[in-house]
Design a protein around this nucleic acid. Structure first.
Length: 757
DNA sequence: TGTAGGCATCCATACCTGTCGCT
DNA sequence: AGCGACAGGTATGGATGCCT
C-alpha cells in the first residue's frame, strides 16, 4: 500500500469536497480528493419530535441517534450529517424549529479539523492510503481516496521537502510601506537546491520573475520572517495595484487570509518564523538577527533598519541587496534547525504544519484534546463566553537576602500534571460523592479515570518512550534530533493543560479544576517546607514547585520523604556555588558549579531596560559572585562614570517597549505610547505586538514629553542624568544595597557630586 | 483567537499636607 | 485670621515583562 506524507488538508464544506496535498514515498507531489460530510450533535428532550423537524431541513443528509460522553455523563444525542450545505445555516434552522432543543455540539468545529479528527489522520505524518488514479491537473498527479488504511507511526523521518526561504523590501520615502504608494524593490530567495538570488528591477517584471521562479522551483515549503502579517499581504495588495495576481500557491492560486492571522498558500506550507520568535522567551526584540544569534548560527548581517532603508537604497543599493540575501539565507538556516520541531508539534496537536505556529498554546492544547475526545467518544463542548473569576495560584516564599554558598535547587517534577493524575482531577470526574478527597477542599473526584489524567498519562508515557529511544541513538544523529524535538513538543502540551483548564476562552474551561490543582500545589510545597524545617534544613527561597536549600546530607532524606509520603517525584535540578538574593521574589543570580552565571528575573534580562543598565547590572552581579562586593562597586562606578562622561553609544540607551493594544485603548499616558503616536503621525504603522524603541532627551516636565524614537535622536540631546538616575544607578543599587552600599558610595570619589545637583 | 497566577517595577495622576504670600 | 497657590510627598492604578 503506498505511503503518503501529509502536507495540508483543506476543503469546501458546502460541496463536501476535501483536498489533501501530499508527497508520495517516491517524492511525487499529489492531490488527493475525498468527500466528507460535516457532522454535529443535537441534544433534545424529545428526540422523536425534534428529529421530525430536523429531517425536513434542506441540507440534512442523515440523522442518527447515538450515545456520547459529555463531562462524565452519557448523553443520547442526534447525530446530524450535512450534505451540500453549511452547518451554520442548518443550526440556525434547528434553533428556530426544534421545540425541545437542549443543546447543540460540535457545529463550531472547522471542516478540515472535523475531517482530520474523524478520519483519524495525522498531519505531517506518513499514511497508508488506498487511492485511485485520476490523471493530472497542471502537472500534479490527482488521486481519489478510497480508504485511509493506517497511519505509519514507525517512520520518524520526514520526506525531502523543497524549501524556499524568501524576504522582500518595499520602498517608502517616509514611514511604513503602504501598497498604495510604495513599490516592491526587491525579493530575495534561498532554496534547498542551493539557489540564492535576488529579484530586482522594474516592479512588474520583478514580481513576474519571482512568481515564475516559484512555479518552476515549485516549493513545498515557503518560509519567511513576518510573512503572515506583513510581507505576503503587502505583496498581494501591491501586485493587485500593478495589475498582477500574486499566485504564490500551487494551481496558480493567490494566498488567502486564514485562521490565527495566517496566510494560507494552496498546496504549500507557508511558515512564518516570526511566530516562533514570538513564543521563544529568550528572544526579546523578535528580530531575525536576534533569532539567528539565539541559535548560534554563523550568519552575519549588514543590517539596514527599516527607517534607513529608503536612504540606503539610493546611496548604496548593493548593500541593501546584500542584506536582503543575508536575510533569506538566515531564514533558510533557521528553518533547517526548527523544522523537526514544527512537524512534531503538528503531528502531536493534529494542526497542519502550515499554521501550527500561528496557533497559540491554548489552541494547540485544545486541538490535542479535541482529537483525543473524538477517539474517546467524548463530545467537544462549544466555545462560550464566560466570566472568569481568578483564583489563588502558586506559593512563593520570600528569599533570605544576601549571598548564599552551596545551594541545592530541588524541583518537583511536573508538579501540576502529577497532581492532576494523582487526584484524578478532570472536568468529567467531579463528583460530590466521589471517593477521592482533596485536603482542605470540598471538591471530590470519582475514581474512574478522567479525561485529562488520561491525556496527561498518554503524554507522559509518550515522552518517556521517546526519551528511551533517544538514549539508544548517537548524539547529533538526525533521528535523535527529531525525537528530541518531539519530546519537547510533548512536554509543552503536557505542562500547558493545567493552565488551559483555567483559561476562560477554553472549550473545557473548568475553573474549579485549575483552582484545586493550584491549591494542592501550595499544600505540597508547604508540607515539604515544614518537613525540611523539621530536618533542620535551611531553605533560602521557594517558588511554586521549587525549593532552594543549603546543601546538607539530610536533603536525601527530604527527597525520600516527598517520594514516599507525598507520593510525588522530586529531583535536584541544579546546584549553585553561590547565589544572590535581594528582598524581591522571582529575582536572583547564581554562580553554578560549572562556572556559568545564571540571572533570573532581574532587570539585566528584561527587554524593557536600556542596554547600558542591563550590562551594568550583569557585570555588577558577575563581579560580586566571582570576586566580591568591592569589585561590584567598582564596576558600577565605572558604568556611571561612562554615562557622566557621555561615552555610551546611543544604541545602548534605547528602551524598547511593546505596544500591547490599539492606542486609543490606553487609559494612561506612557512614554512608549507617546512615541508610538508620534510615529503613527509620521506615517509609520504600529500595531499591537510591535515594539517601539526610544531614548530620553533633555528637557523638563513629564517623561513622556522628553521621549524620541531612537532613530531620530542624537547623542548631544540625550538626558544623561536620566540614564544615571533612573536606569543604571537603580539597577546597580538594587543589588549593592543588599551589602549595605549606599548611593553616595557610588557617586562620591569620582567627583560626580556636582553633576547630580 | 489569551494556558494560569504571582511579582517587581516605573510612571502618571490624584490626593494630602504644609508653607507662603496676600488680603 | 482666612484664603488660595504652590511645592513636595505619598498612595494608587495602569502597564510591562518577568517566574514557575
Amino acid at each position: 500500500m503506498p505511503l503518503y506524507w501529509l502536507i495540508d488538508v483543506s476543503g469546501e464544506e458546502e460541496s463536501n469536497e476535501v483536498e489533501i496535498w501530499a508527497i508520495s514515498e517516491d517524492e511525487v507531489r499529489v492531490i488527493i480528493n475525498d468527500r466528507f460530510n460535516v457532522e454535529f450533535y443535537v441534544q433534545s428532550s424529545n428526540q422523536e419530535e425534534d428529529a421530525k423537524s430536523i429531517k425536513v431541513i434542506e441540507g440534512v443528509k442523515s440523522i442518527e441517534s447515538v450515545n456520547k460522553n459529555f463531562k462524565g455523563k452519557s448523553l443520547n444525542l442526534l447525530k446530524i450529517s450535512v450534505g451540500n450545505a453549511r452547518a451554520s445555516d442548518i443550526v440556525e434552522e434547528i434553533r428556530r424549529q426544534c421545540k425541545y432543543l437542549v443543546n447543540i455540539f460540535e457545529d463550531d468545529i472547522r471542516f478540515s479539523n472535523q475531517y482530520i479528527f474523524k478520519k483519524g489522520i495525522i498531519p505531517s505524518s506518513w499514511i497508508n492510503l488506498d487511492v485511485v488514479d485520476q490523471g493530472y491537473i497542471n502537472g500534479y498527479r490527482t488521486l481519489r481516496l478510497n480508504k485511509i488504511v493506517s497511519v505509519d507511526f514507525q517512520r520518524s523521518y520526514f520526506p525531502q521537502l523543497k524549501i524556499l526561504a524568501f524576504d522582500a523590501f518595499f520602498y517608502s520615502q517616509k514611514g511604513s510601506p503602504d501598497p498604495e504608494r510604495s513599490s516592491i524593490i526587491a525579493i530575495s530567495v534561498v532554496t534547498s537546491d542551493n539557489i540564492s538570488k535576488v529579484f530586482v528591477g522594474e516592479e512588474k517584471i520583478l514580481v513576474n520573475n519571482f512568481l515564475n521562479f516559484i512555479k518552476e522551483f515549485d516549493p513545498d515549503v515557503i518560509v519567511g520572517f513576518n510573512s503572515n502579517r506583513k510581507i505576503i499581504p503587502f505583496l498581494i495588495e501591491r501586485s493587485k495595484r500593478i495589475g498582477l495576481e500574486f499566485s504564490l500557491g500551487r494551481l496558480n492560486s493567490v494566498p488567502r487570509g486564514s485562521v490565527h492571522g495566517h496566510q494560507s498558500v494552496r498546496g504549500r506550507l507557508n511558515i512564518d518564523l516570526y511566530d516562533l520568535a514570538e513564543e521563544t522567551p529568550e528572544i526579546k526584540l523578535e528580530t531575525l538577527e536576534e533569532f539567528t544569534q539565539f541559535l548560534n548560527l554563523p550568519i552575519e548581517y549588514d543590517t539596514v533598519d527599516e527607517y534607513e532603508l529608503a536612504e540606503m537604497w539610493s546611496k548604496d543599493r548593493d548593500r541593501v541587496l546584500k542584506y536582503l540575501i543575508q536575510r533569506a539565507r538566515g531564514i533558510f538556516e533557521i528553518y533547517k534547525v526548527v523544522d523537526e520541531y514544527i512537524f512534531s508539534l503538528s503531528q502531536l496537536t493534529c494542526i497542519p504544519a502550515d499554521y501550527v505556529l500561528t496557533a497559540s498554546t491554548g489552541f494547540r492544547v485544545e486541538n490535542y484534546l479535541s482529537k483525543l475526545a473524538v477517539e474517546k467518544n467524548e463530545v467537544i463542548p462549544s466555545r462560550k463566553e464566560v466570566v472568569h473569576v481568578s483564583y489563588l495560584g502558586g506559593m512563593v516564599k520570600s528569599p533570605t537576602p544576601g549571598l548564599h554558598k552551596d545551594i541545592v535547587v530541588l524541583d518537583f517534577r511536573s508538579m501540576y500534571p502529577s497532581l492532576m493524575i494523582k487526584y484524578n482531577i478532570s472536568f468529567d470526574t467531579i463528583d460530590p460523592n466521589g471517593p477521592i478527597i482533596v485536603p482542605n477542599s470540598a471538591i471530590r473526584f470519582s475514581d474512574k479515570e478522567g479525561f485529562l489524567p488520561h491525556a496527561l498519562k498518554k503524554l507522559i508515557e509518550e515522552r518517556r518512550r521517546i526519551r528511551e529511544k533517544m538514549d539508544m541513538l548517537p548524539r547529533d544523529s538526525p533521528e535523535r534530533i527529531i525525537l528530541d524535538a518531539r519530546q519537547r513538543a510533548v512536554k509543552v502540551i503536557s505542562n500547558a493543560i493545567y493552565g488551559y483548564t483555567g483559561w476562560a476562552g477554553a472549550r473545557w474551561y473548568t475553573r474549579e479544576i485549575a483552582e484545586v490543582t493550584a491549591a494542592l500545589g501550595r499544600e505540597i510545597i508547604l508540607n515539604a517546607i515544614k518537613k525540611a524545617e523539621e530536618l533542620k534544613l535551611k531553605i533560602v527561597y521557594g517558588d511554586t514547585d521549587s525549593l532552594f536549600i543549603k546543601n546538607d546530607k539530610k536533603i536525601d532524606e527530604l527527597i525520600n520523604w516527598v517520594e514516599n509520603v507525598l507520593g510525588l517525584e522530586v529531583k535536584v535540578d541544579k546546584i549553585y556555588k553561590t547565589v544572590l538574593f535581594t528582598e524581591a521574589k522571582k529575582k536572583y543570580a547564581g554562580l553554578k558549579d560549572d562556572g556559568a552565571i545564571e540571572i533570573v528575573g532581574l532587570e539585566a534580562i528584561r527587554g524593557d531596560w536600556s542596554e547600558v543598565a542591563k550590562l551594568a547590572q550583569k557585570e555588577v552581579v558577575e563581579a560580586i559572585l566571582k570576586v566580591g562586593v568591592e569589585e561590584g562597586v567598582n564596576v558600577a562606578r565605572r558604568h556611571i562614570n561612562n554615562l557622566v562622561s557621555q561615552k555610551v553609544p546611543l544604541k545602548q540607551l534605547i528602551i524598547w517597549k511593546q505596544i500591547t493594544k490599539s492606542l486609543e485603548d490606553y487609559e494612561a499616558t506612557a512614554p512608549h505610547v507617546e512615541v508610538a503616536k508620534k510615529l503613527i503621525g509620521e506615517g509609520w504603522k504600529i500595531q499591537p505586538g510591535d515594539k517601539v524603541g526610544y531614548v530620553i532627551v533633555k528637557g523638563t516636565g513629564r517623561l513622556y514629553t522628553r521621549v524620541k524614537p531612537y532613530f531620530k535622536a542624537n547623542l548631544n540631546e540625550i538626558d544623561w542624568n536620566y540614564y544615571v538616575e533612573k536606569q543604571v544607578l537603580p539597577v546597580c543599587m538594587r543589588i549593592l544595597e543588599v551589602f549595605g552600599i549606599k548611593e553616595s558610595d557610588l557617586k562620591s570619589t569620582l567627583g560626580l557630586t556636582a553633576f547630580f545637583q
